[in-house]
């Protein structure tokens, strides 16, 4: 990889850590107008927008939890952008304070200085078709997902007697609403929800998280899923949890759902919770 590509990767990490995607910032501005002046919800949203502007202007991280780094790279540029190139850029960004030293060995408790190990950052090489299906531009996409939101992601197995949820779209809706209800403000509401219906346990989480790469204005091409997305979004915002769980009209900014084939014995519903600081960006 040449110098130009190295600079491009570092720039991508910096921009992703310090700025919100325009669709997310736009959605936050829109919901701010719905909350009464002086309410906790309004104060929280005003602080979020003030923070977004300040982070961008000062080139500092939007949120101190710079999260799990997931790179999604077009397989066509695999030879030009290798895992070593990505790691070099991540190490450099960590040194510059664009990323927190955010990687801990769970057994020894040791903190890794540059966020780079055999297993981190996470790098996926994906097809151009896959990128197109999520509406991704360019050839490299980076997502930063903080731990507070990751802790709120959940997986359900249908049918569920506890939720009174059967193996149908009404049952799926109950699972997703339950996840949003349980998350309260802990995942840094207003959040964005990625859903995978079906699949096995492992791919369920992976695919639900990938749904968070879609823009908020992207609508599922499947009319049944598009209807489900709208339905859950409307209902979730009647829960009254509000920004940071302090009450209010906006709990969720968007719901993005997809489906994967399942086994006759299994029917998983996997819910990925993303905080308002939904950091994703693409380049090249």
């Amino acid at each position: 990889m040449g110098d130009r590509e190295a600079k491009k990767l570092l720039k991508l990490i910096g921009e992703t850590s310090t700025s919100l995607p325009d669709d997310v910032e736009g959605a936050l501005k829109k919901v701010l107008a719905k909350e009464p002046r002086g309410s906790s919800a309004r104060i929280v949203l005003e602080t979020i927008l003030e923070n977004t502007a300040l982070a961008k202007a000062s080139g500092t991280p939007l949120c101190q939890d710079t999260g799990t780094l997931s790179f999604y790279i077009d397989e066509a540029v695999k030879d030009k952008v290798t895992p070593e190139d990505v790691k070099a850029a991540v190490a450099e960004a960590t040194k510059k304070g664009l990323l927190r030293k955010n990687c801990i060995d769970p057994v020894s408790g040791r903190s890794f200085d540059d966020n780079c190990t055999e297993y981190t950052p996470i790098i996926h090489y994906k097809s151009a078709e896959w990128r197109k299906s999520l509406g991704l531009e360019g050839t490299i996409t980076l997502q930063l997902k903080g731990g507070g939101s990751e802790n709120m992601s959940r997986q359900y197995s249908l049918p569920s007697t506890i939720l009174g949820a059967a193996r149908d779209m009404t049952g799926v809706r109950k699972c997703v609403l339950d996840a949003i209800f349980r998350a309260q403000g802990y995942g840094c509401a207003p959040g964005i929800i990625g859903v995978c219906i079906g699949g096995d346990r492992a791919t369920g989480y992976e695919v639900a998280k990938e749904q968070l790469l879609r823009r908020l204005d992207d609508i599922s091409p499947d009319p049944k899923l598009a209807r489900l997305e709208r339905w859950i979004l409307k209902d979730a915002n009647m829960l009254g949890i509000g920004p940071m769980g302090m009450g209010g009209k906006t709990t969720i900014l968007g719901v993005k759902a997809t489906a994967r084939p399942r086994l006759p014995a299994s029917f998983f519903v996997t819910v990925a919770y993303m905080c308002w600081a939904c950091r994703r960006n693409s380049c090249g």
């Binding site: 602080t47 300040l54 982070a55």
Partner: peptide, 13 residues
């Protein structure tokens, strides 16, 4: 006291 989650730049300032 609830500080706004994610609003790290405002707090750092």
């Amino acid at each position: 006291i609830q500080a706004v989650g994610g609003a790290a730049a405002v707090a750092a300032a």
